[in-house]
Amino acid sequence: MKRENRTLRVKLLIAACVMFGFGFALIPFYKTICEVAGLNNLLRADKGVSNSQIDTSRMVMVQFDANTRNLAWRFKPLQASVNVHPGQMVRVDYEVENTLDRAVTGQAIPSYTPMVAERHVQKLECFCFRQQTFAAHEKRVMPVVFTVDSDLPTEVPVFTLSYTFFEVAGTQK
């Protein structure tokens, strides 16, 4: 009986250690899973154009939208929309101006509608890949370079690419 108790205790201790360790192992696990599954890659350029063939048989209208959330920046696309052939490389400029008297660091988060478009946009360059620090009243024009896959479903002739700029927490002085 005593020995049984002791082995049980040892087993429970090992189980506790393993669980505790698993908590920490989750971080690399999560990163690996995201890389493999291609999840949560907001902050990286896409791997490149999967299909460089330009599909001239149809046009896709891409609308651009800009929002700021609790951030007094002036943020707008310089074009409201573009018409492109799938596969064609597009460059769009966004203009950002910090209206505050202090330096602010912001991060832009993209969003697409219809949601299916997200999987068919390959971004090669984007200001959303990293945090952007603006000096007081600084004004900058920042580009987004992307292509639309030619496998974008034909039911989606128009989609909207929207960015929301957030102030990065903990950076305000």
Partner: peptide, 11 residues
């Protein structure tokens, strides 16, 4: 604790 599970700003 500063996580962003439900906050778009942090992904």
């Amino acid at each position: 604790f500063g996580t962003s599970f439900f906050n778009a700003a942090g992904g």
